[in-house]
């Protein structure tokens, strides 16, 4: 299928997804379920990865900024900027594209090949709206929360590695993470995460929804969902950075 044909089918799908829900009460219930399934269940991996990345960044910053001309607090400052500007939004969302993207694509793809989506259509249900809209809303709502958790836990990881190994004094680290703090960077990171959440949920849904054939096709759809949503995230990262920071 050609690039423009794919864009057209994606737009057509999104048009169906964002049509008026047939039952608002069901939508609300589905959104809560999706927040739990896609978001709360991703909290564990978010915390683990953010903590260890925070410790690794702090350690590397200490080792690479041993120049006497640089103040010690620069470690905390660079750890904070790395986490706020790139890791907690972009890299975390790339990781979530793998976890959540494959989950969504395989779930919807399996529903497609086992005729569950046809069953919805036969009943007169707008299957795209019923299945995909709650996932998009749920994920867009929960991802900024995950990003904030990631920022906090990453900075905490840096603090703890300094505290336990003694490579940097905790008070100096804390001074660094407070120094020249620009609150707009948090806004920038959260705005990016909203776009990325939409990209992950909608791209994965698209590939799952149009999966045809058998288990092999579902696997392929899942892979395509992860690869393509990752590429789109990286493109939008460049675009949004230029729009919001330059």
């Amino acid at each position: 299928m050609g690039f423009f044909e794919s864009i057209g089918r994606y737009a057509e799908l999104m048009f169906e997804v964002f049509s008026k829900p047939q039952r608002w009460r069901l939508l609300g219930r589905q959104v809560v379920k999706e927040i739990e399934k896609l978001g709360i269940d991703s909290l564990g991996i978010t915390i683990i990865i953010s903590f260890f990345i925070g410790t690794a960044i702090t350690t590397q910053m200490v080792l690479n900024t041993e120049n006497p001309l640089l103040p010690k607090y620069v470690t905390g400052l660079t750890t904070r900027e790395t986490l706020l500007l790139e890791f907690s939004s972009t890299i975390l969302c790339l990781i979530l594209a793998g976890k959540v993207g494959s989950n969504i694509a395989s779930e919807i793809g399996t529903m497609r090949i086992t005729e569950q989506i046809d069953a919805l259509k036969i009943m007169g249900v707008n299957a795209a709206n019923y299945l995909i809209l709650p996932k998009i809303i749920g994920f867009v709502v929960i991802v900024p929360v995950l990003v904030i958790f990631s920022m906090f836990v990453g900075l905490l990881g840096g603090y703890l590695v300094g505290f336990t190994s003694g490579i940097i004094q905790p008070s100096v680290y804390v001074m660094g993470i407070q120094y020249a703090f620009n609150p707009f960077y948090v806004t920038y990171s959260l705005v990016k995460s909203l776009f990325f959440a939409f990209i992950i949920a909608s791209t994965a849904s698209y590939y799952g929804y149009y999966a045809y054939g058998g288990a092999l096709e579902v696997g392929k759809a899942s892979t395509k969902a992860v690869v393509n949503s990752s590429i789109i995230i990286l493109l939008f990262n460049v675009l949004l950075t230029n729009i919001m920071l330059v």
Partner: peptide, 12 residues
């Protein structure tokens, strides 16, 4: 319209 699918198509 009601439909019975070959694989039942119940929602998992």
């Amino acid at each position: 319209v009601g439909m019975l699918f070959q694989g039942s198509a119940l929602f998992d």
